[in-house]
Design a protein around this nucleic acid. Structure first.
Length: 418
RNA sequence: GUGGGUGUAGUUCAAUUGGCAGAGCACCGGAUUGUGGUUCCGGGCGUUGUGGGUUCAAGUCCCAUCUCCCACCCCA
């Protein structure tokens, strides 16, 4: 084979397309029900947009971003995530002028140079929703509720929600200092990764899987103990709204988001049955991002999720989301005279929106009926010499085996009514 | 980026100590020329992922490389 698909990418083949479209439209419907409008941004942006917003030191920027120069030497990057582009567009197009609150959703491919694994690809498809313009804790809960509604619409049962608050930059700073003070004396016992983390992002030490680090991290200070009264109150309000919405959750003070821009609420949707790549979706509040990108200081909260893992979960729970495609009719033509009126009829029916199949390379009656059968069509439309003379079409119900004759002009109406 | 596994027909899988690359399913055609599904018959030279090496002989052994899978890592 001469050409191969690039590593970590995949084709969505015809057999799977219906499934993907079904899940995507389920998300669109849910987002629209919550008052979100669709936005589509380019798959590449100025590299700096991501470097600034996600954080220079984040793994996404450091080792996973597809970064390249175009022919004029501009540094561009395939988007590794969806929030920064949406915010860029929000600022650039002055969407704030549309009203106090802007609710946007998106669907599209994202790119990360990662080692491929089940549920992890280099081009993967994400959906997301961003609620820009309010600090109110209701919206933190609403964005979570949007994801919950989407999962329920698909019929997924086994997905768990964990939430946390990482506070405002102020609490965050004090907490990071507390962590550093706690880990510093244990420095020699930590793994190499964690020693560098201690300098750059002490919070990442909390979810290190190395047993010795784990043991030390066990006694580490807990984020939620370091929230100031405003941050604590905001978190309490979010939880209370979730309770009002009948959404169950677990508070997990160790949730750490990979991107730098998160403040206050952070959350993750997990499917424990999925293996290593078990995060179905995640998000949180990012009150500082819009100002950082050059807009007015505007609070916002958002969520993103991955379709691949969603589809894996659906499969695992035995949920089928799409019906296979079936044409309404298969056109069987016998002889040259039939071909003329038959091809004309085929065109008319398709123009009217009926799905009709035909294969001019099969000429025996038997072969054509066989093809009609395996096409799963409901009816065979048969035109032979007799029908041409009479100006009729013989319509055979392939499941029942019954057939009837109709004038050629009445076929469209027949299909419309059946 | 690290470690482990894997790769044979469209697909799911066989192939003895190195000894002629096979089967089910799918697909195509046919069984007196205008009636399908069932049945029967016929149809397979495929760079055994790729490139080297060992050997009289390699799907099988060795080296390299790629893919996918699993874990680390990272995340959605």
């Amino acid at each position: 084979m001469e050409y191969k698909i690039p590593r970590g990418t995949f084709d969505i083949l015809p057999a799977d397309s219906a499934k993907w479209q079904q899940v995507m439209s389920a998300f669109r419907e849910t987002a629209q029900a919550f008052g979100y409008a669709e936005i589509t941004t380019p798959v590449f942006e100025q590299a700096e947009l991501f470097e600034r917003s996600s954080g220079e030191s984040s793994d996404v920027v450091q080792k996973e971003m597809y970064r390249f120069q175009d022919r004029k030497g501009r540094w561009l990057a395939l988007r590794p995530e969806g929030t920064a582009p949406v915010v860029r567009s929000y600022v650039e197009n002055h969407l704030e002028a549309q009203g106090r609150l802007t609710k946007l959703y998106y669907i599209g491919p994202m790119f990360r140079y990662d080692r491929p694994q089940a549920g992890r690809y280099r081009q993967f498809y994400q959906y997301g929703a961003e609620c820009i313009g309010s600090h109110h804790p209701y919206y933190d809960a609403e964005i979570i509720a949007l994801q919950v509604a989407f999962l329920r619409k698909l019929g997924l049962q086994k997905i768990e929600l964990e939430i946390n608050s990482v506070g405002c930059p102020n609490c965050s700073k004090i907490y990071d200092e507390a962590l550093e003070n706690y880990f510093e004396p244990h420095k020699e016992e930590l793994c190499g990764d964690c020693r560098t983390r201690l300098q750059t992002k002490p919070r990442r030490l909390l979810d290190c899987k190395v047993p010795s680090c784990k043991a030390i991290a066990k006694g580490a200070p807990v984020m939620t103990d370091y929230l100031d009264s405003d941050c604590r109150e905001h978190f309490e309000q979010v939880k209370s709204y979730l309770d009002k919405m009948d959404i169950s959750y677990k508070v997990n003070p160790r949730i750490v988001r990979g991107l730098d821009y998160y403040t206050h609420t952070a959350f993750e949707f997990l499917n424990p049955a999925l293996g290593a790549q078990n995060a179905i979706g995640g998000g949180g509040r990012y009150d500082g991002l819009i100002a950082q990108i050059g807009g007015k200081d505007t609070p916002a909260v958002g969520i993103a999720g991955g379709f691949e893992r969603l589809l894996l979960s659906l499969e695992q729970e035995g949920i089928t989301v799409s019906r296979p495609y079936r044409p309404q009719a298969y056109l069987v033509l016998l002889g040259e005279a039939a071909r003329e009126s038959g091809i004309r009829l085929l065109g008319q029916l398709r123009l009217s929106g009926f799905s009709v199949q035909h294969d001019p390379e099969k000429d025996s009656f038997k072969a054509q009926l066989k093809a009609a059968d395996s096409s799963q069509a409901r009816f065979a439309l048969i035109i032979g010499e007799d029908e041409v003379k009479a100006g009729t079409v013989t319509i055979k119900d392939l499941a029942a085996g019954t057939q009837m004759s109709l004038p050629i002009g009445g076929v469209a109406q027949f299909l419309a009514l059946s």
